[in-house]
Amino acid sequence: MGKDKRIKNITSTVLSQFWGKLERIDFDFKFKDGNWKRLSHEAYGKSDGVAILLYNPETRSVVLSKQFRIPVYVAGVSEGYSIEVCGGSVDEGESPESCVIREAQEELGYHVSNLKFISTVFLSPGIVREQVHLFIGEYRDSDRIDNGGGLEVEGEEIEVLEMSFKEALNMIDSNEIIDARTIMLLQYIRINKLL
């Protein structure tokens, strides 16, 4: 945790470590008026993550995935299915670049050689400590090495979707694409006129 003279007496209690670590963090915080107050927050996370949007400048298409997400289901949205960019968790000792190349092969079935880093973001900084490293990558049909679909040992069942860039943008407007990483990367492609 970073050093800030307005924060002191930090304690952490692990509440759960089932998949990621959920911890309660208690600390004293000095407000602008000079008063100190004891605050408590929860922070959740496993490791940093990656996400990549594959795009084809020749066909003006993108590759996305569709998979079941229990938080989406519990929220009562789209029967729990999310259309999104490829992503995953960075393993210990692995670089974000190596991770995103591995995930693109496992989930989408594409070999990525033309990788561009876009940004590192927090998607929900009020509770989740995961930083997500965002990438884009050009692909050609010849970069497809298998059908993708994810890893059975990780409980993944991923449908690979190749669609026109225009169709993907329309899916944002129709709320079929609700994943923040996907929206950011599609908008990056649009703003920078890559397709």
Rank of each mutant, 00 (worst) to 15 (best):
L108G: 00
F117V: 00
E84F: 01
I158V: 14
V50K: 00
R24K: 15
L169A: 03
S82P: 01
D4T: 02
F27R: 04
I127S: 09
L186G: 07
V14A: 09
Y110T: 04
V132D: 08
T13H: 13
V112W: 02
I10M: 09
L161E: 05
V153C: 09
P57A: 04
F68I: 02
E152W: 08
T11Y: 05
K3F: 15
Q17E: 15
S61T: 15
V62Y: 03
P57K: 10
D146Y: 13
V128H: 13
V128I: 13
I177N: 04
P96L: 01
D48N: 15
S124D: 14
F117Q: 02
W36Q: 07
I145S: 02
W19K: 12
R140W: 04
E152T: 12
K8T: 06
N9A: 08
D141E: 15
H41F: 11
Y81G: 03
G126L: 11
Y81D: 05
L54K: 02
Y44Q: 07
K66F: 05
S78E: 10
T11K: 13
I7G: 06
K30D: 07
Q17C: 11
F135M: 03
N170M: 09
V153F: 14
G45A: 06
E106H: 12
Q131F: 09
L194N: 06
R69D: 08
I52L: 10
M184R: 12
V77N: 06
D4A: 08
I10L: 13
L134W: 03
Y44R: 07
D146M: 08
Y73H: 13
I10N: 03
F165Y: 15
L123N: 14
Q105F: 15
G2V: 11
I178Q: 07
N175C: 06
C86K: 00
I189W: 01
T120C: 11
S47W: 07
G34Y: 10
L64Y: 07
K5A: 10
G149Y: 08
P71G: 00
Q67W: 11
V14E: 15
C86M: 11
L115I: 10
D28W: 03
F165C: 03
V90S: 01
E58V: 12
E84T: 06
G93R: 09
L194G: 03
V50D: 00
D143P: 04
I191M: 14
L64I: 04
D143R: 01
S95F: 01
D33Y: 08
E176Y: 11
E106F: 06
G45Q: 07
R102I: 02
D146P: 05
F135C: 01
G109I: 06
G93Y: 07
E154A: 13
C86I: 13
G34E: 10
I52Q: 02
K30N: 13
D179R: 01
Q105V: 12
G149P: 09
M1S: 12
V90E: 01
L194F: 06
Q67N: 14
V85I: 09
E107L: 05
I178F: 08
Q187E: 15
G126V: 06
K166M: 06
I127R: 12
S78Q: 13
I183T: 10
E92C: 02
T13R: 12
V132E: 13
E94P: 00
N35G: 05
C99D: 07
R140A: 09
G88S: 04
K5T: 12
